[in-house]
Design a protein around this nucleic acid. Structure first.
Length: 495
RNA sequence: GGCGAUAUCGUCUAAGGGUUAGGACGUAGCCCUCUCAAGGCUAAAAUCCGGGUUCGAAUCCCGGUAUCGCUACCA
């Protein structure tokens, strides 16, 4: 039997890293086992549902590289199925209509956040209290209905016994049924709750493995009860630990970029992000950490999933990005850089075709120093446009020797006279000049780098000259001379 | 409050009765060097606490503590 898994986000926010990681695990599992991944949008909560957010979630998944095979299905379009299931459960006496007032936000004391002081008097419920409506007679119900009292459908949880299930990550689990309240299946407005819709759908969609966040671990007994009541075999459950912020609380907007789209914009590579995410809560056997997606697929096993919550460690994510920026085969990196340059308005069509070799060479030269895709259009901007500025700190640091103006003037002339334009020729010209003038080559090299690229942090000089070409190199040196003289004038540096 | 889960360097983790408790990120230092990265080397850094079981516990059991989750007509 080929596995069928699903990722089932609810459109109440962006695709955050926790959801992204769950989606990734499902995808890896499907890939690894030749299974099918379904996408299901759980939009049964009209209150906080945001249909406009669905596209963002889909975009996030696409960026992540999590491709689903079926769907997206929308629970809001499958309501009849849930209602029918609820009726079936009522018919079999596994569920019952409840006429209690909805104890939701209207009351004001819905959330158990406030613990107050120890002076509260009301007896705290130690066990899950069964709903009084479960024992209503048919006559009682008819009377309530006649009075027009709305009702929800609740599951009739047994008073006795235990419910157990086996989790692929957490192992065997067993709870006392007396700890489970008579939970709602169908709200009085006719919409299903999560517990109902998730089980009905997972049965209908023939899901074999439910891989989801560990926040659902405590809900699973209820769902197990439902599976039995609906006479269906429960799937394999695999609960994955949650991802926390640096302060060890659940990841939220407070921790900065929470939607994966923000990481895309910051210049992270999807594969680096996948690599990082996969290692949060899962570990393969060995010491290897740089695992390309194909490696992840080959090695992914539910048995390697951890049971402890993991803190999202941004520095490590950045490290992964740096690794990918440097190790990816250049042809795989190029499209990302092109996209970045397009976004920054620096892209020239010729680089994609006639000057492809040049573009590839330039990217290869620049990438050892990049940490984000965006570095190509910021720090390395001068490679792609003549419109750039001289960094103030770079000027202060490398343009402070007053001989530099004259030196660069001479260098420009020497370079202009060069018959061949390659690394060694540029190298010889500069070092020859430095030796003749009695200055250290480093003085000239560093000063020239700022003149050419506007930055102190940039690739090695002579390769940069080759990439820039003779004309642009000479031009830039000549153009920089006034600025150099100004910066290196006695007394200018202190300002 | 009730119920449950979890607990190894600051962080992600390996080691599931016997190891100098390993690796990675980060941090510090050194090397390399044309700036800055990358890379190489080195260092500091952990088994939550207390009891058991055992010849021997990070590992098994119990208690405590902490954290997280559930306890909604949210998902």
């Amino acid at each position: 039997m080929t596995p069928r898994v699903r990722f089932a986000p609810s459109p109440t926010g962006y695709l955050h890293v926790g959801g992204a990681r769950t989606a990734l695990f499902n995808w890896l599992f499907a890939q690894r086992n030749g299974g099918t991944l379904l996408l299901r949008i759980e939009d049964t909560d009209v209150e906080r549902n945001r249909p406009d957010l669905v596209d963002g979630i889909l975009d996030g998944l696409k960026w992540l590289g999590v491709a689903w095979d079926e769907g997206p299905y929308f629970q809001s379009q499958r309501l009849d199925m849930y209602r029918a299931a609820a009726q079936r459960l009522v018919a079999s006496d596994a569920a019952f209509p409840c006429y209690c007032k909805a104890s939701s936000y209207a009351g004001g004391d819905a959330s158990p956040e406030e613990e107050g002081e120890g002076d509260d008097e009301g007896p705290k419920a130690h066990k899950a209290l069964p709903c009084a409506c479960r024992d209503l007679t048919d006559a009682d119900r008819a009377a309530k209905a006649r009075d027009g009292i709305p009702h929800a459908i609740r599951f009739r949880v047994p008073h006795e016994g235990t419910t157990s299930f086996d989790d692929a990550v957490f192992g065997k689990r067993e709870v006392q049924n007396s700890e489970i309240e008579d939970f709602v299946l169908l709200r009085s407005n006719g919409l299903p709750t999560y517990q109902l819709s998730v089980v009905v759908d997972d049965i209908d969609m023939r899901i074999t493995h439910v891989i989801r966040g560990a926040d659902h671990l405590s809900n699973t007994p209820k769902q197990t009860l439902l599976y039995h009541a609906l006479e269906a075999a429960p799937p394999v459950f695999a609960h994955v630990p949650l991802i926390l912020g640096p302060d060890r609380t659940r990841l939220s907007k407070r921790h900065g970029a929470t939607g994966v789209g923000a990481y895309a914009e910051e210049g992270f590579l999807p594969e680096a992000f996948r690599n990082f995410l996969a290692l949060l809560g899962w570990a393969p056997g060995g010491d290897a950490e740089f695992l390309r997606t194909s490696d992840l697929v080959k090695q992914f096993e539910l048995s390697g999933v951890s049971r402890t919550n993991a803190v999202f460690d941004r520095p490590k994510l950045e490290w992964f990005n740096t690794q990918y920026l440097q190790k990816l085969p250049i042809e795989e990196l190029l499209p990302y850089v092109a996209q970045q340059l397009k976004r920054a308005g620096l892209w020239q069509e010729a680089w994609g075709t006639t000057e492809h070799a040049w573009f590839s060479h330039a990217v290869d030269l620049i990438r050892p120093r990049t940490r984000f895709l965006t570095d190509f259009s910021t720090a390395a901007r001068a490679f792609f446009t003549d419109n750039f500025e001289y960094d103030a700190e770079a000027q202060a640091k490398f343009w402070k020797d007053e001989r530099l103006g004259d030196l660069i003037t001479k260098l420009a002339a020497a370079l202009a006279a060069l018959p061949d334009w390659d690394h060694d020729a540029c190298d010889a010209a500069l070092r020859g000049l430095a030796a003749g003038e009695g200055v250290k080559a480093a003085l000239l090299i560093n000063g020239t780098r700022v003149a050419m690229l506007g930055r102190a942090v940039a690739p090695p000089l002579f390769e940069s000259m080759v990439v820039l070409g003779k004309d642009r190199t000479v031009q830039r040196l000549e153009k920089s001379i006034p600025a150099i003289r100004k910066s290196s004038a006695p007394g200018a540096a202190s300002a």
